[in-house]
Design a protein around this nucleic acid. Structure first.
Length: 430
RNA sequence: GGAGAGGUGGCUGAGUGGUCGAAAGCGGCUUCCUGCUAAGAAGUUGUGCGGUCAAAAGCUGCACCGAGGGUUCGAAUCCCUCCCUCUCCGCCA
């Protein structure tokens, strides 16, 4: 959320920054509503003031007996006027608030111009792409090896749901543990949050009110299935003031994630890349404003460390202003190599939100120097999307004989197994 | 699901119509004192929004005692609705 005071004082700068984003974002209406709102607020307060004065007269016994009715009448009159103004004021305040919540974070100056993914900049490449003859797609390998059952996923739910079987289920679980362990060793404190969150959480991190249709909602309770662990974990300390000395705070969390993928019709319909339900380990940081840039770089490296440990070739991409998500001020995507597709695909997104989310969640720290609490900065990044990691492993580690080698770091998580092969008939699912 | 209790400032906890933005204690901050990370004394200490100001400070106005309505000249206090928390019983992984 933008700071309305900053918007008032730096209209041009804010508008310029927003213009770099994709879509039409104007603060014009906001400025207008804000102006009206303050006008009405002034009127309202003046009436209240007079009303308070009258009460004060009564309180101190200054009202002559024969004047009481006159004062009472005036007070009633004031109340009438207040009742006329109040709905206006409320509407304007609400409108202003909705507008504030609906405007995205202005991009950081270090974010390059660009309208879409074509404007993104590759800033790093890592790993050696393996030479694989006629590589199979992960969904072919997954089906052949009895790891991924797409048909039955559809039967149980609908399209974009998949059943993991046998070693597929085990690898998914192994990856979860491996990632959490690695991050835990770096000081990320593990969290296992609720998977259903209330509306305020969704507003806090920026999913709502702008993208209402993108999420699964439990109507009866007005709860939402989390689209990412970012939502509950960032909201952990909502409405709290943390001592400066306790910052930065690092958290990692595994959760399943649920997304309706409303705008993705026809995209990635095959395979395990784009699901309505997927697993992910998320990194979340709470930082002092002056350190958030550095923390962003470090956090991105922490996500990369997973790919490096798994020896999966990847590249880091600095997103351009037009391609960034709503709440981000600056964002790196990590993209992993998919041999069968012959291209890199997103597997992690690491963002610095500045104080954008902290404003929405009222998330402050108290400076050691003293003084009033200030908004902190929040960051998060996937570390990593587990389903896509599994898919990348299948494709990158496939062997000529149709088997898949298991990455070294996962062997100990899989009871010493070193290869994925077609299950023996007795053990295979039917 | 049934029964009961309760939601007040960073915390504990008073307060049943005006003297309450709110006692007291704790904590925090400032100063003083004490020959030393103890003890004591005094003072101070909520948040948000608006106005004034180049800005900050200051000054000033309004609001806030779970949320929303109502009664009243006036509500933390009375009435109504809702939300949440806790305890007991039931049920349950």
């Amino acid at each position: 959320m933008l700071d309305i005071k900053i918007v008032r004082d730096h209209q041009e700068d804010i508008q310029k920054a927003l213009n770099r984003r994709n879509g039409q974002w104007s603060i014009e209406q906001l400025i207008e509503v804000d102006k009206k709102c303050r006008e009405i607020q002034g009127e309202w307060e003046a009436l209240r003031r007079r009303s308070n004065e009258i009460s004060e007269q009564f309180k101190t016994g200054k009202v002559p007996k024969d004047q009481m009715d006159v004062f009472r009448a005036e007070s009633k009159e004031l109340k009438k006027k207040l009742e006329e103004i109040e709905p206006q004021l409320k509407n304007l305040e609400e409108e202003r608030n909705t507008l504030l919540l609906s405007i995205p974070n202005p991009p950081d100056p270090s974010v390059p111009d660009g309208e879409d993914e074509n404007g993104n900049q590759v800033v790093k490449e890592w790993g050696t792409i393996r030479d694989i003859k006629d590589p199979k797609h992960h969904y072919e390998l997954g089906a052949e090896l009895g790891l991924l059952d797409f048909e039955r996923g559809v039967k149980l739910a609908e399209s974009r749901f998949t059943v993991l079987m046998n070693m597929g289920a085990k690898i998914e679980r192994a990856l979860m543990n491996f990632m959490l362990d690695l991050h835990g060793a770096k000081g990320y404190i593990e969290v296992f949050p609720p998977i259903l969150v209330n509306r305020q959480c969704m507003i806090g991190t920026g999913q709502l009110p702008k993208f209402e249709g993108d999420f699964y909602k439990v109507e009866e309770e007005e709860l939402y299935l989390v689209p990412t662990a970012e939502v509950p974990v960032t909201n952990l300390y909502r409405d709290e003031v943390i001592e400066e000395t306790k910052l930065p705070v690092y958290h990692c969390a595994y959760t399943p994630n649920f997304r309706r993928e409303a705008g993705a019709a026809g995209k990635d319909t095959r395979g395990y890349i784009r699901q309505h339900q997927f697993n992910k380990v998320e990194l979340v940081k709470f930082s002092l404003p002056e350190n958030s840039e550095e923390e962003h770089e470090k956090m991105t490296c922490d996500a990369e460390a997973i790919l490096e440990a798994l020896e999966l070739p990847y590249r880091r991409v600095l997103l351009c202003a037009g391609d960034m998500g709503f709440s981000a001020r600056k964002c790196y995507d990590l993209e992993v190599w998919f041999p069968a597709q012959g291209k890199y695909r997103e597997i992690s997104s690491c963002s610095n939100f500045g104080d954008f989310q902290a404003r929405r969640t009222n998330l402050k720290y108290s400076p050691t120097e003293g003084g009033k609490p200030k908004f902190m900065h929040t960051l998060n990044g996937s570390g990593l999307a587990i389903g896509r990691t599994l898919a990348a492993i299948l494709e990158n580690y496939q062997q000529a004989d149709g088997s898949v080698k298991i990455p070294d770091v996962l062997i100990s998580y899989l009871g010493g197994a070193t290869f994925l092969r077609k299950a023996e008939p007795a053990k295979a699912s039917v």
